[in-house]
């Protein structure tokens, strides 16, 4: 009798744990039905635009360096 209740309570705990593990909310559905790819593309575009801007600054600095070295 005592053994039985112990097994039952253990089973209950395990089931609870399993249920909890399944309940962890991740963006799985969002990824399949939602528009997470739109966000990814937007983030990628932002990083590319910032990088292109950095390249243009770099080129400008190089030009200035050239100019100043020639005039010296």
């Amino acid at each position: 009798m005592k053994n039985k209740s112990l097994i039952f309570s253990l089973l209950f705990v395990i089931m609870n744990l399993a249920a909890q593990a399944q309940n962890v909310e991740m963006a799985d559905t969002m990824r399949s039905n939602g528009k997470i790819f739109v966000v990814v593309v937007v983030a990628a575009v932002v990083s590319i635009v910032l990088s292109i801007y950095m390249i243009s600054i770099d080129k400008k600095v190089s030009k200035l360096e050239k100019k100043i070295n020639e005039s010296k």
Binding site: A21, V24, M26, R31, F37, V40, A43, S47, I48, S51
Partner: peptide, 19 residues
């Protein structure tokens, strides 16, 4: 650096992570 960052911004959102 640019390649790594763009990769981060794409895989950072789409890559599998532990729940």
């Amino acid at each position: 650096a640019i390649v790594m960052l763009v990769y981060t911004f794409i895989m950072g959102f789409l890559g599998p992570v532990p729940a």
